[in-house]
Amino acid sequence: MPSDFTLKAANAVHRALLRISFGRWGTEFYGMPALELTTIGRKTGQPRSVMLTAPIVDGDDYIIVASRGGDPTHPAWYHNLRGTPTVEVSFRNGPRRAMTAHILSAEQRAPLWSRITADYPVYGDYQKRTTREIPLVRLTPVTEGA
């Protein structure tokens, strides 16, 4: 399981790659589109950003996986969006968009988890490393007037 230092270093390298290549590199990771998720810190109230992959893109919605590499604890960003589900997303280094995070129920998760692990078996490996059920989160655009 990755340490906090390793995760933060990987995120910093990913952001630097996007920045120095002017968005030409780093918009995909392991064959999945990459996005930057900005949540509001549950303890600090400050914006917190993390680079993630979206193994499923469903129109304007993105499915993200709170795997943390199979760690026994949920990632900090997952706890943050549970407290404040309104987030900002930059998909493939595009413009930031306001979105709402919806943690999927077991029934909603099951068919998507099957798709994800079939296409990206590493997520199944992560699930084997932990006793917690790895959550899936659907990010949906905030609609005008909502």
Score class of each variant (00 low, 15 high):
98 A>V: 13
133 E>H: 01
83 G>Q: 11
69 G>N: 07
19 R>M: 04
36 E>W: 04
94 G>L: 06
103 I>F: 12
117 T>E: 02
80 N>L: 05
82 R>Y: 04
142 V>K: 06
35 L>C: 10
22 F>I: 14
94 G>H: 09
32 M>R: 03
101 A>Q: 06
41 G>C: 01
118 A>V: 14
22 F>L: 12
94 G>P: 14
98 A>G: 15
10 A>C: 08
41 G>L: 03
120 Y>F: 11
142 V>H: 01
101 A>C: 01
144 E>N: 09
105 S>N: 01
14 H>N: 07
70 G>S: 06
60 D>R: 10
84 T>G: 05
34 A>M: 07
25 W>G: 01
23 G>W: 00
118 A>I: 11
138 R>M: 12
8 K>V: 04
80 N>Y: 06
4 D>G: 04
103 I>T: 14
36 E>I: 04
54 A>L: 07
36 E>H: 10
37 L>H: 05
144 E>I: 01
123 Y>K: 07
77 W>T: 15
51 M>E: 14
92 R>V: 04
122 V>A: 07
51 M>R: 11
129 R>P: 01
76 A>Q: 15
49 S>W: 01
146 A>N: 15
137 V>W: 09
11 N>P: 08
35 L>E: 01
18 L>A: 01
125 D>M: 06
77 W>G: 06
79 H>E: 15
82 R>W: 02
105 S>A: 02
51 M>F: 09
94 G>V: 04
96 R>N: 08
9 A>P: 00
114 S>D: 15
18 L>S: 11
143 T>K: 14
120 Y>I: 11
89 V>F: 00
35 L>W: 04
